[in-house]
Design a protein around this nucleic acid. Structure first.
Lengths: 336, 336
DNA sequence: CTGTTAGCGCCTTCAG
DNA sequence: CTGAAGGCGCTAACAG
């Protein structure tokens, strides 16, 4: 038997009291007779009363809802991030409205519009890989909807950001390889549009200089993260006459693909050639001959911090002027 | 400069027309002067007008929002499912409100309550692994919020379900092993509370009978899906004096763990012992010595179908009486 | 073609 | 301690 959800009005009618009394009773308002309060709460329970958040949102101008815009949920890094966000919001009484851009700027725009329509109280974003126009987000902020970016953050926008710096960790990756007597090193970088491209590049260059590696022993190639280009990239490295004995891959997915290809060429992983990479996906630890190390980028922590910042902004009692605008984690090399 | 979002009222004031004119103009209502319509739409654009969904939801009693309750986003199967749901809802103008139960019945209840509060138009659920009390969901349905379960569906509830039958595929798994001359087979099943437990069990029994395998060559153990219990389970199998030469694992995560342990015992995968399992996670194909096969359970398709069913119910023009209540996919064995 | 108005459920100020 | 009433933004029925 389907019935419409109960309202305070109904409860009021049943008890012959006013709706304001009911409202107050349900909120443990001081100055309501204990007796009435009990009666109200009992009937509410009986009728299965659940306050209508849509009405409350409308009335209060707050939806108790946070928007999350990510490239793709179906990628460990981001699904871990979502988990973090949802864990945090759940305990703060907020709910999460999601949208995935699929690394498509147009879709990203549409999603922003949807969030705006729904009047989410704030938005957490990890940008699509080729977003360069930030006006949709500026629009949000102009309308009083705070935005916090994490991991894939905008390079030229005055906004709250949480990110993970890879340059130092990249240096350490090279240090590690050099310490293990590797001299010829290959490097598979990613799309230039991503902020982390430069961090990897710089860290790598820095360490190459530090260790006085010869330029001819260094090969840098790149991939747009598709399997095809990744295969092309690793092929380029393996085809060199002085093949590198170690490869730094853009991330674990790239590394897995590269390792697979390398194995298929009859080379022995960790004998003929070793791999290190970024992301530190749990899954990579199950390989028999896998990565020497991977760089932990703290998806959970980044997302958690971003959410925390958002809540500080939303919590109007807090003073946001003291809030640090750009929070940076340091990535860490994890040995496997 | 932060400003409050514009309302139709403001647009109306600017143009000295009534709010209903504005409302109609914005909705391309027939019978509004082309001139006025244009003027309204122009001002709306100028003021950056975005309709307040909270107000609309309140007024219409429809939130254009779908709730999704899953055990854990951070598990490939479910993150793929979310992707499917979000892809579908996005193109239908709906938004997704998420909640993860972390396989905890209490949290699941809380999430249901939140969804109810938010008056989502419908809910998609994959149950927590030990949910046996379905009253929260019955409550939802009683309040007119349709619920569609998928994959982890309730066993004793008259409700819309989409699932993937594993019994047939489990039989084929055994067929496959027998064809490869395996006689001693170990089977790691999961928690009994899950509907698929029985499907695996039955399929297995069926095939054991079919192939006339001797009972003493068959060993069935189980895990609650924690690493510890999985390790205990595989240990039990390996410790038998006539160790199985093939193992069917509850799913790929269990398999990965079991394979790792087995390797650490000095056994050679695919020589001393082979593994097959369920879920067919992309990741398992990167192992050098990995699974012989895995059972595809179609997370994307299941979630898509569930969403489709939900939309048919929500679309009141459709006749739901013709709707099939329990949709079943057949799982498929995929060779690796 | 356009304006007026009621009301969705709830909170909150103002009166008793 | 409790009641009455206004209003949040929007839609839709009714009236011009």
């Amino acid at each position: 038997m389907i019935q419409k959800p109960a309202t305070i009005k109904e409860i009021a009618k049943r008890l012959n009291v006013s709706i304001s009394t009911v409202s107050r009773a349900l909120h443990d308002h001081p100055g309501i007779g204990l007796r009435t309060k009990m009666r109200v709460q009992q009937i509410a329970a009986e009728l299965n009363y659940v306050p209508n958040q849509a009405a409350i949102s409308f009335k209060q101008g707050k939806t108790k809802t946070v928007g999350v815009i990510l490239p793709n949920f179906n990628e460990d890094f981001f699904s871990i991030a979502i988990t973090a966000i949802e864990d945090m919001t759940q305990s703060n009484g907020y709910t999460v409205l999601i949208g995935q851009s699929h690394d498509n700027t147009e879709r990203e725009k549409t999603i922003v519009a949807t969030m705006q329509k729904h009047r989410v109280d704030g938005v957490l974003v990890s940008l699509s890989k080729n977003t360069t126009d930030f006006t949709p987000f500026e629009q949000l902020m102009a309308n009083g909807i705070p935005v916090v970016f994490f991991d894939r953050i905008p390079n030229q926008l005055d906004a709250y950001t949480v990110s993970c710096d890879l340059s130092k960790a990249t240096e350490q990756l090279v240090d590690l390889l050099v310490a293990q007597k590797h001299k010829r090193i290959g490097f598979i970088n990613g799309p230039e549009s991503m902020a982390s491209f430069k961090e990897r590049e710089e860290g790598f260059r820095e360490s190459v200089k530090k260790h006085k590696l010869s330029e001819k022993d260094i090969t840098v190639v790149s991939t747009d993260l598709t399997k095809e280009q990744t295969t092309t990239a690793i092929k380029q490295l393996l085809d060199k006459k002085d093949r590198p004995t170690a490869v730094i891959a853009f991330n674990d997915y790239v590394a897995l693909e590269a390792i697979k290809f390398t194995r298929e060429q009859g080379l022995k992983i960790n004998e003929d050639i070793s791999f290190v990479s970024y992301a530190n996906l749990p899954i990579t630890t199950y390989l028999e001959q896998g990565l020497l190390a991977s760089v932990e980028q703290f998806p959970y922590e980044q997302a958690e911090k971003a959410t925390e910042i958002l809540f500080t902004i939303l919590d109007e009692k807090e003073d946001t002027s003291a809030l640090q605008k750009n929070y940076v984690f340091q990535a860490e090399v994890v040995m496997h």
